[in-house]
Design a protein around this nucleic acid. Structure first.
Lengths: 107, 107
DNA sequence: TTGACATGCAACTAAATGGTTGCATATTTT
DNA sequence: AAAATATGCAACCATTTAGTTGCATGTCAA
């Protein structure tokens, strides 16, 4: 995985919104994803290309349409690495989950 | 928290390296952090300012020195949100941890 | 108090980025 | 075959970004 490409892809709010939309409804076409965005189709296509290069989105050609699918793997990999790296006691998703699973309220 | 500032701050490899260094040794001065980096002091100072604006680094003045401390909170918040959002079954830190804590190997 | 050290500030530059317009290509549909 | 639809490609533009150099300020030590 290319860390840098992923981080840089995630740095843009429009691209994060595209990921959000794909997360809501996977397999959308470029045309679909343009709906309601204040941007030209070409701009959206560029964003999608960047997401695809970062392996955050994969695509499948279907006739004249191109379907876009979110790929959560790189996000998870980065999250894992960075959570582990910078986690502090009693902070973050893991410790919360731990408490939940262990049935402690730990006030 | 300002999502966008954090994402954009993390988008640069030099800044991620600075975070790594602070994670290794917290409380370093600007001068410390310049060591071994192929960049002028001013460039490093700019990166640190960006990290500080994003609340990923906090600082304390000590005489003529400025000490830099990593702040893991925003990273964890983003990781939590994005893990939760894009997590898929059997993928990522949380599901792994779940299995571990539940004592399942779940082959 | 003078010199050395640590940081701050500002102007400038080159390259990357996010966006546009215009045109080309490929696939349906009629 | 022709028109409509969906995407691709390329040139261009404005702004942001990452870096530089040069100088100023603040603090410590002799």
């Amino acid at each position: 995985m290319n860390d840098d490409a992923v981080f840089r892809a995630l740095a843009d709010a429009s691209r994060r919104e595209l990921l959000d939309r794909l997360h809501q409804t996977n397999g959308q076409t470029l045309g679909d994803l343009c709906q309601g965005l204040d941007m030209t189709r070409q701009a959206v296509a560029k964003h999608l290309a960047i997401l695809e290069d970062a392996n955050l989105v994969s695509t499948r050609r279907q006739g004249r349409e191109k379907l876009h699918f979110i790929n959560p793997v790189p996000i998870n990999q980065i999250a894992e690495r960075w959570i582990g790296k910078f986690e502090q006691p009693r902070l973050g998703a893991l410790s919360k989950l731990k408490k939940t699973l262990e049935g402690k309220d730990d006030g």
